[in-house]
Lab assay of single mutants.
Amino acid sequence: EVYKVKIKIERVLPNGEKVEEEITIEVEGMSEEELLALARELAAEPGVRIKEIEIEKLPP
């Protein structure tokens, strides 16, 4: 199964400015739980906050 994972994050820059970013990846052969863990890892940097995680199962 192939999933499209869209992660919206908010990053706080050293000057205090907040910037929103969106990361989209396609992943194959992982469960939804593994995808959530991967998304959290991607956003685990200091000053980064996850705003939204969207997981979509793509048709075969």
Rank of each mutant, 00 (worst) to 15 (best):
R49C: 05
A44N: 12
S31F: 05
E45S: 15
E28Q: 07
R40H: 09
E10K: 01
E10C: 04
E54T: 14
I25G: 01
V48Y: 09
I23H: 06
A39Q: 04
N15Q: 02
V2H: 15
V5N: 00
E41M: 09
G47M: 02
A39M: 15
V27F: 10
K4S: 05
E45P: 08
K4F: 07
G16K: 02
E26L: 12
E26H: 08
S31C: 04
V27R: 05
A43N: 08
P14Y: 02
L36F: 04
V19P: 01
K6D: 01
G29N: 12
E17C: 11
P14D: 11
A39P: 01
K51Y: 06
E41L: 15
K8R: 10
E34N: 11
E26D: 06
L36E: 07
P60S: 13
E56A: 14
L42R: 07
E32I: 14
Y3R: 14
I23L: 07
L13D: 03
P60V: 13
P60H: 09
E41S: 12
V19A: 05
E41P: 01
P59H: 14
K8Q: 03
S31P: 14
E26Y: 10
I7L: 04
A37R: 11
E33W: 13
V27S: 06
K6V: 08
I50V: 07
P14E: 15
A43E: 07
K8P: 00
E26K: 08
E22K: 04
V2I: 12
K6H: 06
L35D: 00
E33R: 07
V2N: 15
R40F: 06
Y3I: 14
L35P: 02
V2S: 10
L58M: 12
L42W: 07
P14A: 12
I7K: 00
I50Q: 00
E10P: 00
V12T: 13
K4Q: 07
I50K: 00
L38Q: 03
K51G: 02
V19Y: 08
R11E: 00
V2K: 15
M30I: 10
E32L: 08
E26G: 05
K8H: 09
I9R: 02
K6S: 09
V48K: 02
E28W: 06
E1Q: 09
I55E: 01
A44D: 06
G29K: 11
R11V: 03
P46L: 14
I9N: 00
E10T: 05
E33M: 10
V5H: 00
E20N: 08
E54P: 01
Y3W: 15
K4G: 03
P46M: 08
E28M: 11
V48R: 03
V2E: 09
R11F: 04
E28K: 05
E33C: 07
L58I: 15
A43G: 12
I23V: 07
E52C: 06
E22N: 07
R49K: 11
E26F: 12
L58Y: 12
A37N: 12
L36N: 10
R49Y: 06
Y3T: 14
N15M: 03
E32Y: 07
A44V: 12
V5P: 00
G16L: 03
E21V: 12
M30F: 10
L35Y: 05
V19H: 08
V2M: 15
K6F: 07
R11S: 02
L38E: 01
V2L: 12
E10I: 13
R11G: 00
P60I: 06
G29M: 07
V19R: 10
E28S: 08
M30S: 05
N15D: 11
V48N: 03
I7P: 00
I9K: 01
L42Q: 04
R40T: 12
M30E: 06
I7V: 08
I7N: 00
V19N: 04
E10D: 04
P14T: 07
K51I: 13
G16N: 03
L36V: 12
E1T: 11
K51P: 00
V27D: 02
E1P: 15
A37H: 15
K18R: 11
K18I: 15
L13T: 08
E26V: 11
I9W: 08
A39V: 15
Y3V: 15
I50F: 03
V12F: 08
E52N: 13
V27T: 11
E41R: 13
P59T: 15
G29E: 04
K57H: 05
L36H: 09
K8M: 03
P60Q: 11
L58H: 13
A44K: 15
S31A: 04
R49S: 05
A37E: 06
L38C: 04
L42F: 04
E33I: 05
K8F: 09
K4E: 05
K51W: 09
P60R: 06
E41G: 12
A39E: 03
K57W: 15
V12C: 04
A44R: 14
K57E: 04
E22G: 02
E28A: 11
T24S: 06
A39S: 06
K8C: 04
A44E: 05
M30A: 05
I7M: 06
A39R: 03
S31Y: 12
K4T: 06
I25K: 03
I23Q: 02
I9A: 01
K57N: 05
M30P: 04
K18Y: 14
V27E: 02
A37I: 13
I55N: 01
R40N: 05
E32H: 13
A37P: 03
L42G: 02
I25S: 02
E28C: 04
A44I: 09
L36R: 13
A37Q: 13
V48C: 03
I53S: 00
E1W: 15
K57Q: 10
I50E: 00
V19K: 09
V12P: 02
V19T: 08
I55L: 10
R11I: 04
P60Y: 00
I9G: 00
V12N: 10
P60C: 04
V19I: 12
E33A: 10
E22P: 01
R40Q: 11
K57L: 13
Y3P: 11
E56N: 06
V12I: 08
I50C: 01
V12Q: 13
R11C: 02
L38A: 03
P46T: 12
S31N: 06
R49P: 01
A43Q: 06
L35N: 01
K51E: 03
E28P: 08
I55Q: 01
T24R: 03
R11L: 03
I23F: 07
I23Y: 12
T24D: 06
L38M: 10
E33F: 12
E41C: 09
E45C: 09
E33P: 05
